[in-house]
Design a binder for these strands. Sequence first.
DNA 1: CTGAAAGCGCTTACAG
DNA 2: CTGAAAGCGCTTACAG
Lengths: 348, 348
Amino acid sequence: MATKETGPRLIDVARAAGVSIATASRAMAGTPGVRPAVAELVRKHADELGYVANVHARTLAGGHSRTVGLVVHEIGDPYFSEIASGLLRLADSEGLSLQICHTGRDPESELRHIRTLAAHRVAAIVVAGSGFVDPAVEAPARRELERYAASGGRVAVIGRHHLGTDAVLPPNEDGARAVAEHVLSLGHRRLVVVSGAPVLTTVADRLAGVRAALADAGIPEGDVPVLEGPFTRDGGREAARRVLDEHPETTAVLALNDDMAIGCLSVFRELGVAVPGQISVTGFDDVAVAVDLNPGLTTYHLPMAQMGEEALTLALKEPSVRPRRQLTRGELVVRGSTAAVRADALLL
Amino acid sequence: MATKETGPRLIDVARAAGVSIATASRAMAGTPGVRPAVAELVRKHADELGYVANVHARTLAGGHSRTVGLVVHEIGDPYFSEIASGLLRLADSEGLSLQICHTGRDPESELRHIRTLAAHRVAAIVVAGSGFVDPAVEAPARRELERYAASGGRVAVIGRHHLGTDAVLPPNEDGARAVAEHVLSLGHRRLVVVSGAPVLTTVADRLAGVRAALADAGIPEGDVPVLEGPFTRDGGREAARRVLDEHPETTAVLALNDDMAIGCLSVFRELGVAVPGQISVTGFDDVAVAVDLNPGLTTYHLPMAQMGEEALTLALKEPSVRPRRQLTRGELVVRGSTAAVRADALLL
DNA sequence: CTGAAAGCGCTTACAG
DNA sequence: CTGAAAGCGCTTACAG
C-alpha cells in the first residue's frame, strides 16, 4: 500500500504482483525479457496502486535523464515564447520534459541557471537569446557548458555565440540587409536605425547588414544615425522620441527588432506622426502580432518556433567533433508600415 | 578527479578536502554544524573541481524537491507566457526550478503531464488555463492531483476548476459584465458575442457576465447572437466573417478574449469595416499587444503575471483544510476600439 | 563539530 | 524469462 507521505513504490507493485522488483522494473519500463502476461499483470497492479515511478531514483540508477533545459532571456517575450513553443512541441513528442529558466539578459543569472540545469543532469541544454560580441563576457558560461558537456551533456544555442557548441543561426545580417534594401528601394535616404546594445551579436549582425546595404547604395555611414537603447518596446519608444527631436527630417526608421519597432509605432501614433505617410517603420523577427498592427509591420520573418525545434534537434543528436552550424532561412515581409518616400521629402 | 562521464561527485570533493562525505554534504548545503573554516575549505575544493551536486541524488535522499511544475495550454500564447513569466520570476527568487508543459487544451495530454510532474516529485504543480463546466471531464485529472497531493505534493490552479485545490480566480463574470455595460452605455443595442467553447468555465463565466448586463439593460437574450468557435485568433476571424454575413446590422462585437477580438479586428480591417466607426470591438484579458493595436483594444485587464505569481504563492503555502480561493482584481480598459453607436444605427 | 552507516527508489549487469 | 544484489550520489539521524 501507499504510505501517506510518499506514494507507492516499485516494491509495492512488485509485491502486489508477486514478482521481484527487477521484473517489476522491466515490466514498467517496457524492457524486453519479461513474459508478456507477467508484464501486463505488473502494470495492472501498478495502475491499481496509482504507482508513478520516481524520476529521481530512475535517473540516478539509470544514468540518463528525460528532461531538457531551455535558457531564455524572458519567457513573457513573444520572441522567446514562440521559440519555447516549438521546442516544447518537439520535446513532447519525444517524451521529454522541459525545464525553463529566465536570465533577464543577465550573464550572472545565465551562469547560475546553466549550473542548475547541469545539477539536474538534464540530457540537453538549449540556450536561446543573443550572444555577446566580446567572447570574454561568455567565457564563464562557456566554461560551465564545457564542464557540462564533458560529463555527457549536450548543448545547442540559438544565435551567434562564442560557446563552441552546435548552433542555430538566424540570418541576422542578410535579413537586415534585405530590410534596408527594401527601404532604400522605396526612395528613402534619410534613415535612422533604432538599435539595441551593439554588444549583442544579434544587434551587431543586424547593424552590419544595414551598413552593407547602405554601402551598396553609396550612402555614407555617417549619414545614418544609430540610436541605441534597450532592445525592447520601451527602448523603441525612447528612440522614437529622439528621432522626432533630433532627426525631424527622417523618413524611415529601421528598428532592429519588432519590439523596438512596436515602441516606435506607439509613439508615432500618440504624437500623430503618420506611418507610413510621414515615416516608414520596419522591424525584425516577425513576432505573431506584427501582422495585426495597423499598419501591419514590415519586418523580417524568423521562424522562431522552428528555430526552437531545430535547436533541440541538434542538441539531441550525437555530438560531432566540430560544432554544427544550422543556418535558418528567413524572409522579408512587406506590410503597410513602409511606403515610397514622399516627393517633398526628396527635396529636403 | 572528475571521471569523464559523470563529473566529480561529493566523495571526490570530500577526499580533496580531507573530510568525510557527511561533512562535505553539510558544507555544500550550508547546514549549520560545520566549522566555518572547514566548510569554506570544502567549498573551495568543490569549486576547483567544478563540482555540481546531483539534484536527483539530493532529492532522492533528502526527500524534497526544489522544482515546481506549470501546466499551460500553449506557451506560445501571450496569455500563458505572461502567467509563466510572473510565476517564473517568483520561482527564481525562491530558488526553485520550473518545469513547463503544454496540453494543447487536450484533457488526455493534461493528465499525462500531471502524471509526469508527479513522477518528478515536483514540490508543487500549478495548472493554468480554463477548467471545464462539466466536472466529469476533470475527474481523471482530479484523481491524479489528489494522489499527488496525498503523497505530499501541493497544487494550485488558475481559473475555476472542479479540482478541489487552491485557486486563483480571475473576475471573469464581473469583468465581462463591465465590458458589456460599457458597450451598452455607448448606446449599442445590436450586439454579437464572439465566444469560445462554452464547455470551458472561463467562457461560461464571461458569457454569464454579458448576460447579466443585458438583463439589467432589459435586452432579451435572444436579441444577442452568440457565435462560437475556437478561443483563438482564427476562431475570431471566422466569427467576424459570420458577423458580417449573418448579422450585418451589428454595431458592436464582444469577443470573450483578446485573441478572438484580434482576429475580428484583422478581418474587419481586411474588409474595410471601420472600427469603431462602423463596429465597436471589445476583448478580454488585455494581453500585452492590446494597447499597440490600432485602434487600441478596449478590453478587460487581467494581471496575468501577477496571477501566475499568486498561484505559485498559494501552492507554496502549507495546505489548508479547505481549498483557498484567491480573487484577482481586474479592470476595464477603454481604448479606441469602442465608440458611441452611430446615430443612423439607432434607426435600424 | 565530525564521521560511519543506513537509506532514498530505482536500474542493470550477473547468474541462473 | 526471472531474481538477488550491487550501485547510482546524495542526506540525515545516530553516535561520538
